[in-house]
């Protein structure tokens, strides 16, 4: 130690030399790695959920069975009936080529789908808040062209949204648990420091150091290892997310929704190390002040 540091604001208690302090940054790094990934997954699922809502909300599909549908007249009749319904904003037959392409993943590119009795599909967009009676509509369509069925996306969407919500709750819980682990690290480091440096603390108190002065030693120590661990953990998580992003199938992939993060969400993740540091500092202060207050 040089004379130059003798009068600086450097820590009076040698907390960084404590055996437990060596592992503090790594525990925080591991915890922040998991917290970052969990929150990123939660946000990505939320983004996908909103995409699903936007894409499918207010839409239904109508299937006209093959024998009638292939002729085209039945489809035209159903489309006319749909367009005449006040609660329906628009009804458009789906190009048979598109219908066949939807089946391609199951049947293969070389399948002779022209020979299959595929139903005709009609995309229907409902008017918002029109109060559409799907059952009554299906009865009317079936009467016009027997076998015509309505596929209400809302029912399947509800299942998907419920699962997405469960995943988000799970992500938040995982993030909270590992955030708690990072916080506990500050508590254990502070308690260990208070115990192993009892003699030095007694000397400081004897020469007029208040609880706040002593607590600041632990606050500074917690800030030091939290910011280091937090940056390492978040950087590793960001690297993992970028790597995962390269292997992600993207928006055209079948059955897999596109899950990306907005710039604001990346900023939120980047704020995790300073937020974790502030929490660790507050935790260290409260822990130290409470422990010191028990001494006469």
């Amino acid at each position: 130690m040089t004379a130059g540091s003798a009068y600086s604001a450097a820590g009076v208690l040698p907390l960084r030399r404590d055996a437990g302090s060596r592992y503090g940054p790594w525990i925080v790094a591991a915890a922040l790695f998991v917290v970052t990934l969990a929150l990123a997954a939660t946000m990505a699922i939320r983004n996908a959920e909103q995409g699903w809502r936007t894409a499918l909300a207010g839409k239904i599909s109508v299937q006209v069975p093959a024998p009638s549908g292939t002729g085209g007249e039945a489809v035209a009749e159903i489309v006319a009936l749909l367009r005449a319904t006040p609660a329906i904003a628009d009804a458009e037959p789906v190009d048979p080529v598109v219908v066949r392409s939807l089946l391609e993943p199951w049947l293969g590119a070389g399948a002779e789908m022209e020979a299959l009795p595929l139903p005709a599909l009609i995309d229907v967009r409902l008017r918002p808040d029109a109060g559409m009676d799907i059952v009554a509509l299906e009865v009317a369509l079936d009467a016009a062209v027997p076998g015509t069925r309505i596929d209400d996306h809302g029912i399947r969407l509800a299942y998907v949204l419920r699962f997405a919500l469960a995943l988000q709750v799970f992500g938040v819980v995982v993030a909270a648990i590992f955030g708690l682990i990072a916080t506990m690290t500050a508590i254990f480091a502070t308690r260990a420091g208070l115990s192993s440096h009892r003699e030095e603390i007694g000397i400081l108190q004897a020469i007029g150091a208040g609880d706040g002065y002593i607590a600041r030693q632990f606050v500074a120590h917690s800030a030091n290892f939290s910011i280091k661990g937090g940056i390492v953990g978040c950087a590793l998580a960001a690297g993992a997310l970028i790597l995962l992003g390269r292997y992600a199938p993207g928006g055209n992939a079948f059955m897999v929704p596109e899950m990306t993060l907005s710039p604001i969400q990346w900023i939120v993740l980047a704020c995790l190390p300073p937020v974790a540091t502030v929490i660790a500092m507050a935790t260290a202060r409260v822990t130290a002040m409470r422990a010191l207050s028990r001494v006469i």
Partner: peptide
Amino acid sequence: GLISHLTAAENVALPLRIA
């Protein structure tokens, strides 16, 4: 009652640092 990891000057400086 000297703090063992602090130099003589650092030990003497403590009351002023606290103040």
